[in-house]
């Protein structure tokens, strides 16, 4: 047993993706906590952006249910409109953004719209929000998803948010300015695009998980990078920062 939960490990793995001084499209739930941890540890000068029209330095002090809640506005760096904040993204001024999803495929395309044919779907998911814009325009895209075979699929039914499309140079040829997915953080592992095809490879195994188990739970023939790592356990400093941010222990169980 570890002295941290899987969720906590994911948050800390996500926090490590934020570099100091970067402008980050944060989003809700896990990434907002990751942003807070990064600010308290290695990235004290990171800037958080929320598509509803909020920019913050310090993370909000009170619990947020949505990015539009009062605590996210009190003491903000800027409260404005969506076009002003997402315009920074469109203008190429955002270093990285977080997105989640219901389905992701081996070229890191994400579906949050339709399961089945979009004209006659078996399941209608809520839709895109701002995720396609973040996926298209941010310099790096950090993806967080639960690692299950039905979520990590060979090919998504509908590309809501583009990764590397059909692989190789397809993303560039489609005219997408942002660099695309740099990392996929799951509850079992970290995947990264690797090689000329930009196919997602297993890059790091979380403590307590095995390569075999991860491959079994992936919907395509998951390859491994040559220098496969074990995800470093959270340090005391990182866990202390997380417990400062997550006062109520929301992510602890």
């Amino acid at each position: 047993m570890h002295d941290y939960s899987t969720q906590e490990l994911m948050i800390i793995a996500a926090a490590r993706q934020i570099n100091d001084g970067e402008r980050i499209f944060v989003g809700m739930r896990l990434p907002i906590t990751a942003y807070g941890v990064a600010r308290l540890t290695h990235a004290p000068n990171a800037v958080g952006l929320f598509e509803s029209g909020v920019s913050r330095y310090e993370p909000a002090e009170d619990m947020l249910y949505t990015m539009c809640d009062g605590p996210n506005q009190l003491g903000a760096a800027w409260t404005t409109g969506l076009i002003q904040i997402m315009g920074l993204l469109s203008g190429g001024r955002v270093h990285a953004g977080f997105v989640g999803g219901a389905e992701i495929d081996r070229f890191a395309n994400i579906n949050t719209s339709y399961i089945g044919d979009y004209e006659n779907p078996t399941t209608k998911l809520p839709g895109s929000g701002g995720a396609p814009d973040i996926a298209a325009m941010a310099e790096r895209l950090i993806i967080i998803i639960n690692h299950q075979k039905h979520r990590l699929v060979e090919k998504v039914d509908y590309i809501t948010s583009p990764g590397f499309l059909t692989g190789g140079d397809a993303r560039k040829e489609a005219g997408l300015p942002g660099g695309g997915p740099s990392v996929v953080i799951t509850d079992r592992a970290i995947l990264r695009p690797y090689g000329p095809e930009n196919e997602l490879h297993l890059a790091s195994v979380h403590p307590g998980h095995t390569e075999e188990e991860i491959k079994e739970n992936t919907g395509w023939d998951l390859k491994t990078v040559p220098d496969l790592e074990e995800t470093p356990s959270p340090s005391k400093e990182e866990l202390d920062a997380l417990h400062t941010i997550d006062k109520e222990g929301f992510w602890r169980s």
């Binding site: 598509e51 298209a136 948010s161 583009p162 489609a174």
Partner: peptide
């Protein structure tokens, strides 16, 4: 997407017939 609907409102508000966007490229 959020930005594309936003810019569609922007075009509607300020009399532009359409807006050319990069941010939904690659999306279905």
């Amino acid at each position: 997407s959020n930005f594309s609907i936003g810019m569609a409102f922007f075009a509607g508000a300020y009399g532009l017939p359409y807006v050319p966007l990069k941010s939904i490229l690659g999306s279905d």
